[in-house]
Simulated scan of single mutants.
Amino acid sequence: MRFEVSGREVRLANGQRAVVVDVAGELDVHTAPRLKERLQRLERGGTHAILVNLAQVTFIDSIGLGVLIGGLNRARAAGGSLVLASPHPRIQRILNLTRLSSAFAVVNSEAEGLDILTNECGETASAPDPEPEPTPAPHADVVELTIPGRPENVGVARLVIAGIASGIGFSYDEVEDIKLAVGEACTVALNAATPGGPPPPVALRCQVEPTALVIDAMAPPGVNGTLPDPVDDESSISRLLIESLMDRVEVPPDTAPGICMRMIKSRPRTS
């Protein structure tokens, strides 16, 4: 599914205006800036009553969550609110894992969300063009993958590793967990690079062992495998997600030299 974000003005029960932002596709490190820009445009236009419709969102990572958190905080600071509506069960699970379901008003329908926003108003904005998704690669016993260090390429890494995990018997939900963790690890590796320099390549090594799938996020060139401190919301959410989704996570100094993060997922038992 292509990523799309659009806005539509609605009238609340008291006659005031709000905006429903419909999001479809994967909300991740590559696409989240487009939602952030949309929310900021609404805010600059005086809209602080916003309902984000997540019914068609199939994936969300820490960057996407961070955009939603930022939108909520800015709306509340202006006397408004941001409500999340109709998340898929997998998206709801991520909200629960990160304990963000208690920070947001999360409702099952647009009508419920608009009731919460009855005392707010908003403006509309135009939608950007959708973008294509990358294609997954087949699985192998050992895969070493290096991609240019740009946000739009993180989806390629996710899909390659997801293809490997699916091929060795992980369930759909387990594959989705691994896919999300890999995207977060790529973001961690990029954040370990020196600020201000050119984006380094992202390197992953995936090894299929008899009892586990082992995924190493390699440190960028010139970085000694040191992880950035989780000092902001997105970094904290990223680390929490990875540790919640994988069976074991190792970080320096417990990893081999050059490894930024090692993630281990036990393989399903076969009868």
Rank of each mutant, 00 (worst) to 15 (best):
G64A: 07
A77M: 05
R38H: 14
T146V: 13
G163T: 10
P87M: 03
M263G: 07
V182R: 05
L42V: 14
P220Q: 05
G196L: 10
P33Q: 11
A49S: 14
I50D: 00
L68D: 10
L227G: 02
L51N: 02
I69C: 12
R11P: 05
V223L: 06
P130M: 04
I60N: 05
P199C: 10
P132L: 06
D254F: 13
V23G: 06
G196I: 08
R93A: 14
R8M: 10
R74V: 07
A32D: 04
I259L: 03
I116G: 00
I60D: 03
P134A: 09
N191L: 12
V107L: 13
P198H: 09
I259V: 15
R262L: 01
D61V: 05
Q56R: 10
A217M: 07
V20R: 03
H30L: 04
I161F: 02
K36Y: 03
A203V: 08
I168E: 07
E9G: 12
N53F: 05
T226L: 11
V29C: 06
R34D: 09
F3G: 08
A49Y: 06
D229W: 03
P257V: 09
P210M: 09
C260G: 07
P87T: 08
V23I: 11
E37G: 05
L213S: 00
K265I: 07
L51W: 02
S171C: 11
T47I: 11
M218H: 04
S86Q: 14
T135A: 13
R248D: 14
S171Y: 12
H48A: 10
G169K: 04
G64P: 00
D216C: 05
P221C: 03
T270P: 01
L117H: 04
R239Q: 15
G113A: 04
F170D: 00
A105D: 15
S109F: 07
L190C: 08
A219P: 05
R38N: 10
V52Q: 06
E144L: 11
V57R: 03
